[in-house]
């Protein structure tokens, strides 16, 4: 077992983990933060996307020990109290979800992307989502929501 200290959604957690523990299971099973989903489990679908030091990563392909000393943000940590993060608000307003399974990963991937490219074109948004699959194929409204959150005319 290894001792790690990870700050998740602003709270520092010290824990003992097996080296082979994946970050996503540390979040879901040890911290009981089940907003982060496991989809394909092969770093393809993006439903396990969280922010590591502010950047999108796939938590099914990271060991919890690799997050030692770093900051993780999950979907549970995005809102400010009762106030949605602007990306959550945009997903809400544009009905950017159907079943909702991919949504936490989509929202966090989009938050990370707008930091790198604050005013993307529609084509750029579509390419930026290459690591996130929506099994309902509801991409159009997801793209609209991200454009709206960027301040573009949707």
């Amino acid at each position: 077992m290894k001792q790690i200290a990870v700050t998740v959604n602003g709270t520092r957690h010290e824990a003992e983990v097996e080296p082979r523990q994946l970050l996503v299971y540390f979040l879901r099973e040890q911290l009981r933060l089940t907003g982060t989903n496991v989809g394909c489990d092969t770093s393809s679908c993006g439903s396990c996307t969280v922010l590591l030091d502010g950047e999108s990563v796939k938590s099914c392909t990271l060991l919890a020990v690799q997050a030692d000393g770093h900051e993780v943000t999950t979907i549970e940590g995005l809102a400010d109290g009762d106030t949605y993060h602007p990306m959550q608000q945009a997903f809400h307003e544009h009905h950017a979800l159907q079943c909702g399974f991919c949504t936490p990963g989509m929202v966090l991937a989009a938050v990370s992307y707008l930091k790198e490219n604050p005013k993307p074109t529609e084509a750029e948004v579509r390419l930026a989502l290459e690591g996130n699959l929506c099994r309902c194929t509801g991409y159009h409204n997801i793209v609209k929501a991200i454009l709206a959150a960027s301040g573009a005319e949707a």
């Binding site: 770093s43 993006g46 996307t49 590591l52 950047e55 999108s56 990563v57 796939k58 392909t61 990271l62 991937a109 990370s112 992307y113 790198e116 930026a128 290459e130 690591g131 996130n132």
Partner: peptide, 9 residues
């Protein structure tokens, strides 16, 4: 390579 999440790691 891969996708944005992969390129971040």
């Amino acid at each position: 390579i891969g996708d944005p999440q992969v390129r971040h790691r």
